[in-house]
Design a protein around this nucleic acid. Structure first.
Length: 282
DNA sequence: CTAGGATCCTGTCAGC
DNA sequence: TGCTGACAGGATCCTA
């Protein structure tokens, strides 16, 4: 579920609360959720948190890395004097940790913990050396994030997928990085494009507007995630919800369009639930 | 090469 | 109540 803005929110939170901590132990409760050798991680200090698209990268002082991908239902929860959670919106601090969905957790030297929870087990943490990171198939094929893509590049990319629905194209991380189901729908709404339109039917203006929309909705969400994080830091279990704050179509089926007043609809495109306004998208 | 569908896994919810 | 199928903020694998 977490898309780029969620992962960036996590990255910032971890940078604030976990950077520099030394990992005393790693508990693996689900083998599938942890790839590679935990021995390269135990005893190491966390040197840096980075992010590429939806992938979180953690650099250790010995030069090894951990790549975390949350996929659909992953979340990271830090519990110490401060508490911080982000990712999949379920659970949070209501459960005892480790909980029913905890797959892996880290114990730091100072007694604090970082939990990786993942209901559906699609996500993972992978221990990687420099070479495996540099040659990782997902990372090497990952396209630029929207704000690093020029309108010309975006347009050129679209020309390679003329017969696909536009939503399917922007969901593919090899085409543009970080867009998921929420921002695909929100971006199409911004550009007034129906998500199932074949790319061939889009004008250059449509494409420019869509790229602009993707940049804007994702940046707004990152900014909002920042304020959500503050609520979490208060450790009161508050569920910040940036969707409520500025979603125009996502999970608003049956409600009025904020732009034209028509009723937001939900259908299926590219195998995913798809939200749109029949009044102002075409 | 692209496009589309099945698949990984667990949980919840609507409908019978 | 119990069963069944659909669906879920993702990405890969397989087939055509």
């Amino acid at each position: 579920m977490p898309e780029l803005p969620e992962v960036e929110t996590i990255r910032r939170g971890l940078e604030k609360f976990v950077l520099g901590k030394r990992i005393a132990d790693v508990k693996i409760l689900c083998e599938k959720s942890f790839r590679g050798d935990a021995h390269f991680v135990i005893g190491q200090k966390i040197k840096r948190f980075d992010r590429k698209g939806k992938a979180l990268l953690i650099q250790l002082e010995n030069g090894f890395w951990m790549m975390v991908h949350l996929r659909m239902t992953g979340q990271l929860i830090f519990i110490g004097d401060d508490k911080f959670a982000a990712g999949h919106p379920d659970g949070g601090f209501t459960e005892e940790m480790p909980g029913r969905h905890t797959r892996v957790y880290f114990e730091f030297e100072d007694g604090t913990h970082l939990y990786f929870n993942d209901q559906r087990k699609f996500g993972f943490i992978a221990v990687m050396d420099e070479l495996s990171l540099a040659t990782d198939p997902f990372l090497t094929k990952l396209a630029p994030e929207p704000w690093y893509m020029k309108p010309d590049d975006f347009w050129a990319m679209l020309q390679r997928h003329k017969s696909a629905p536009i939503k399917a194209v922007i969901l593919d991380q090899k085409n543009i990085a970080g867009v998921g189901n929420i921002y695909a729908d929100e971006g199409c709404f911004y550009a007034k494009i129906l998500p199932w339109r074949k790319v061939a039917t889009l004008s250059r203006e449509d494409a420019d507007l869509l790229l602009e929309g993707l940049c804007k909705v994702m940046q707004a969400s990152i900014d909002s995630g920042g304020s959500t994080m503050k609520d979490y830091v208060k450790a009161d279990g508050t569920k910040g919800n940036y969707l409520e704050k500025f979603s125009q179509v996502f999970r608003r089926e049956g409600l009025e369009c904020r732009r034209c007043g028509a009723e937001i609809q939900k259908t299926r495109t590219a195998g995913r639930g798809t939200h749109y306004c029949p009044g102002c998208q075409e």
